[in-house]
Every structure is written in C-alpha cells, then in structure tokens.
Design a protein around this nucleic acid. Structure first.
Lengths: 205, 205, 205, 205
DNA sequence: GATGAATGAGCATTCATTCAT
DNA sequence: CATGAATGAATGCTCATTCAT
C-alpha cells in the first residue's frame, strides 16, 4: 500500500470517527486533520470537500454491506436449504446484516443517525440504503410466499417496513447505543431471537 | 389570544416547517422569519436563540404526545376491557401514538429524523422520547405477561425494541416519507394491521 | 413639580446610576427604563436618544459644579481675606470642588472615568470640564503670583496640571474608588491636607 | 522573524492605533484588519476575539512598563546615590515612567483614557496598573522617610495619590493631549520640573 | 505531495429606535 | 402621554477552502 493511499485511508478512518462522535455539522474539517495528524491543506489533496468525504463514507458503507450480505453458496456448506431456502435466505441476510452492523459500529451510527435529517443530498443516500435493506426483506418474503411457507395473510408493505424498523432499531440499540462488544455466542443468541420474532410475525413455518 | 402570543405561535409553526424541510443546520433564522413575515429581530424577542427554538419544538412534542396517549377511561366507552386490558392498553397506546404521528407530520419528522445525530444536547431529548415510547411498550407487555395473556417465551429487551423500531419505522414510512393523508378508515386498517403484527410477534391471546 | 418633570428627573437619575455602574456602551437603554419602571418607548418622549441623555448628564454636571464653586462673598462671612485672597480663593475653590465631588459620586465617576475615551463628542465635553478646573487653578495662582504671595519659581503649565491631576486623582480615589462617606470633620481634614500639599508645591507663603 | 509573527505584531500595532484613536467600542474589528491589510478571518487566527486583543495590549503595556522602570544599577553610572538613594530611586522611577509614556503615546492613551470606564474586566487591569505605579511611589517615599530625608509630616495615602495624579495628568497632558515630540533636552527639563514639584511637596532634602 | 497562513462569504445575534394602539 | 411589539442596520465571529512556498 502506497504512502498516499495510507494517508487517504487514515483520513477516512478519522473522518468516520469524528462524524460518528459529533455529527456532520459539528465536526470541523480541522477535527479530522488533527486526528489524522496532517495539515489542513492535505485533506484537500485527497477529497474535493467535506461533503464529498461524508458521501464516500456512506457509499463505501453501502458497497461493503452489499458485499457482506451477498449469498454465498458456500455459506450453506453444501447443505441444501431445501424447500425452505427463502426462509434460510432471509435468516442469512438478517444474520449477515447484523454481523456487519456489529463490526462497523461507527459507520452504522453514521448511516442510521448522523446522515439522517442533514440535507436532501445525504437523505437520498440514506433512503437508498433503507430501500436496499427493505428490498432484501421484500424479495425473500415474496419468495417464501410463492413457495408457500410464508403466510400471505398480511400486508406486505406494512410487514416488511415493520421488520426493517425492528432490525434497524435493534442494531442501533445494541451496537450503537450500548456499544456492546457481544461475543459470537451472544451475537448468535441475539440473531436467533430476532429471527424467532420475525418468524412469529410472518407466521412462517 | 394576544397579538404577541400569535406572533410567537406563528414563529414556532414556521420554525417547525422550516426545520422539518431543511434540517437544523441548513435552516437559517432568516428562513423562519421570512416565512413568518416578521423582521429578524422579532424572533429574538420570543426566543433566546436558534437552538432554544428547536428545543422548545422538541419539548412541546413530548408534552403533547404524553397528553395524547394518556389512558382515558372514556376511550373504552364503558366497555370493560376485562382480563385483556393489558393488551387493550397497548393497542390503545399504539393507536394514540399512531394518530398523533399522523396529525403532526412535521413535528414527527423533526423528532424522528431532523433532531437525530445533530449534537449531544438534542440527542438527549430524542433518546428521552424513544425511552418514553419504549417504556410504554415494556410496561404494557409486562402487565400482559403477569396476567398470562402474553407469552413469556421471548427476551423482553429485544422484543420491545423490535416493536418500537417497527412502530417508529411505520410512522416514518407512512406519515413522513409518503405524507399520506390517510382517511380514518385507512388509518384504522393500518393500525389493525400493525396490532396484528405485534400480536403475532408477542404470541398474544 | 409636574408628573412629567418627575418622570424626566427620575429617568436622568436612573441613567446616572446605570452609566456610572456599567459604562456608556455596556448600559442598555432597557437597563435605564427598567430601573425607572417605565416602558421602553417612554424614554424617547423625553430624550431624543441615548447619546443625548449622556450629554445632558455631563452638561448638568458642569453647570452644577460651576454654580458650586462660584465665589460667594458670604462664604467669607465678612472676614476680609486680606492680601492672601488669591490663596483663599484657591483654597475655597478646591474645597468647593472637593465638596461637590463628595456629594455627587456617581456623576463624578461619570465625568472622571465613564465619559473618558468613549468617543470624540464626549471627549470634547470632558476636556472642557478639565480645562475649566485647570483655568480656575491657573487664574488663582496667577493672581497669587501678581500679588506676590505665590512664588514665580516654577512652570505654570506644569504646576497647574500637576495640581489638577492631584486634585482629580484624590477625588477619584476617595469618592469613587473608596466611596467613603466621609464625615464633615474627615472631609475638612482631607481638604486641609490637600491644601497643605498644594501650598508646599507652590511654595506659598 | 516568521511571517506569522509579523502578521500578529502588525495586527497588534494596528489595533493599538485604532483603539487609541476611536475608543474600544467605536473601533470595529474591520477597522483593525483594514488598517493591517488582511482579511477579517485572519485576526481570529491570532486572537480569540476583540476583547482578548485589547487585554493583550493592556498586559503588554504593564509588562513593558515594569521592565522599563526596573532599577538598573548601571543607570547610576557608578555614581553612588549615597544616603539619598530613596530620593534617587523615586527620581529614577518617575523619569523612566515619563520616558516610557513619551515613547508609547498610543498605548499610554489606551491605559490612561481608552480602557477606563469601559467595563469591570478592563477596569481591573487599569486599576492594577494604577496600583503598581502608586506602590512604586509609596515604597520609595517610605524608604526616604525611614532614612530621614523625606518628612513624615503628611498623610502617606493622600500624598502618594496626589503625586500619582500629578504624574499621570502630566503624562497625559504632554504626551497624549499635546502629542508633543519633546526633544531629549525638553524632556529632561520637564522631568526636572516635575521632580522639583514632587520634592517641594514632600519637603525633601 | 505537504504545509498552514490567509481568505471572505455567510450567519447568528444585538440593541437603539420607531410607531400603531 | 405611555406602551411594548416590531424593526433592521450593524457587527463579531466561524470555518470550509485556497494557494504560495
């Protein structure tokens, strides 16, 4: 890794910490450069302006989350999910999302709280993230309904938004608010509990 | 109503609209006074500064929400809720909360999105709102568990946060994002659907 | 005294207190009207603006001081001051000035400290006061020199300014800084001591 | 000298001129930066606010005056002041103070007139300056009294304040009001005249 | 690439003054 | 005459951004 790439990465890391801690407007560019140990002018060698830095953080987050939840057949370890694969996919996606949130607490805080309500331009990105998560849920549920192991006895729009809200709130509550460093066992238990809730909600079976 | 009280109310109303539309930092004091049709100095006759205006909006919201969800025995119209009153209380609270959100879309947007992530001082108020809603849910569910018509077969912390997340997301989705002016019938249907979800989740009955 | 005259006098009295305590710029018009117990607009019925109020205070001070130090032959009680009347006049003037300062502490503070260094327009008035006091000293000393009982062995300009500085500093020190409420006896002792000093300085005899 | 130090010095110099000419409140920050030929923001790189600039000017003045009047044995050029050293010290101090005033007319104007009566915070600094000069006079006179060449036949408090007032007034009169650029000979004559006055006053000898 | 001094548009806030009631 | 709500010019200060070194 080149020195200049290191500087850039470091600046992004510091920006992430600073924004997560103080919010977009209350974070000054000087906070970031001081934390990174470089001069004021340096940050403008790598990023065109403060807004751009924030947007890069958001887009990297989206990119990395998408990578993280992509279904990898190896995850099933050759075990055929059988007819319940829609259910398994959803479980997988929610688990991966939850893992991703746990491992990226500052960035999760940024997209769930910091970027919210700032301005139209950030709002668009935040919504696209929310929509992506929502669509994952919708797709998997629709699949499950088509295969018959998820009830059709509820409004899809309402249900999926409810699941989305529940998942995001729990992520925020455990990983941002409490900043719990859950052990893998605890994390598994949490994920099971969440999925049980969702299953009840969806009257899966 | 005195002229000066009118001016103050008007300024708060305009501040509400402006903050809801553009966010805290992107709203200038001049936006508010222009919308209200008064001079710059006037706003400082009524409020000590921009931050104070925002905090007053938040605290009024909390105050009004608490008033709105207070259990009023007349709401049951003489119909005895019987042994299911915990369940009825929760339904009542969720219904009132949902009604309140529908009727206060700008203010709901402010507390659910605009005030979030701005700074420590607003954060405290937002959290106290989230905690209040959470406690309503926790209390009613614990009551239901004690009376035996809500299962004890789940983690209270996780479940209540899930319900909170679902309720807030749905409120945001329907009343802020879509800004649907739901008819009372549609609103009732929505509330029923939500409560059905929650019931399934809680394996009530 | 008419009610409106009373209001005007009262406003001047309050302005005097406020300016003396906080300085010209740090005193707000609202401080004065609050102290006087009238509405904001009322003060503009009596005075054209803040500056005018301050100038009136200064000019009244000058007017009253001049009245106070005017030689009144009755003060000598028929006792002929003889050939030392220049010396007696100076003693009389310094005594009257000192009495006047003692009895008008807020106003003395205003002319000696508050009005100083604010702006050109106040400066002119302050200087005219200083010049008047200086001229009294110069005139009496010149008289004494002409009559032969005050030495000519010093620079008039320097000496008179020295005497002026001493007198103003002592006034400020005892009546403003210490705000001593001297008894008449103490005040007499102070005046004697001051005059002894001046006599030594002037090698009077 | 670094560029940034030059800018800072220059800003202080311009602030000194501006405050001396127009007073504290009538001097705008923009007056200072325009005079210095820099942008508005630049001044805030060096000073936290307008008040801080003024206080720095005052404290530098005190610091420099103390340095200027410090007794340096070389000033006596090997000439032993003998038993009259208290008298010599006082003469030395008054001379140095007078020299300092002559060479720092704007700053002297600031501490003697501009800073006076503005607010409590500046007042404290001005008083500490007056007290320091007063103490110099008191100490040297007490020393002279103990050694017997200054009379004990007067009130110390009154006398020292009189001398202080005389010295400050003469400084103000010659160096601020007249802004005379006295030649060294004239300055010496003035100092002799002042000291003669003080000697008479104190019945030294 | 890195630096940090300099920039200046932009913003919140103040406060003497006005004027309709 | 008295009121006090409304005014708006004026000012101090911030902070993202630039650019000469």
């Amino acid at each position: 890794m080149k020195k200049s790439d290191q500087t850039k990465e470091n600046l992004l890391k510091c920006a992430e910490k600073a924004f997560s801690k103080k919010g977009y407007y209350e974070t000054q560019v000087s906070d970031i450069v001081e934390m990174a140990g470089v001069a004021k002018g340096t940050i403008y060698q790598y990023f065109s302006n403060k807004e751009a830095i924030f947007k890069i953080l958001l887009s990297h987050y989206l990119r990395d989350w998408e990578k993280a939840i992509a279904v990898n057949m190896n995850d099933y370890g050759g075990k055929n999910p059988g007819i319940y694969y829609a259910q398994e996919y959803l479980r997988h996606r929610l688990k991966k999302t939850s893992d991703f949130f746990r491992e990226n607490q500052d960035r999760t805080n940024i997209i769930l709280r910091i970027a919210v309500g700032v301005n139209k331009s950030f709002e668009t990105i935040v919504r696209s993230f929310e929509d992506k998560v929502l669509n994952v849920i919708i797709n998997d549920i629709e699949l499950g309904q088509r295969w018959g192991h998820i009830s059709r006895d509820f409004d899809l729009d309402i249900t999926c938004n409810a699941v989305l809200g529940a998942v995001l709130r729990l992520s925020y509550y455990y990983f941002v608010l409490k900043r719990k460093k859950l052990s893998q066992t605890e994390q598994d238990a949490l994920q099971n509990e969440i999925f049980k809730l969702v299953s009840n909600t969806l009257k899966m079976g």
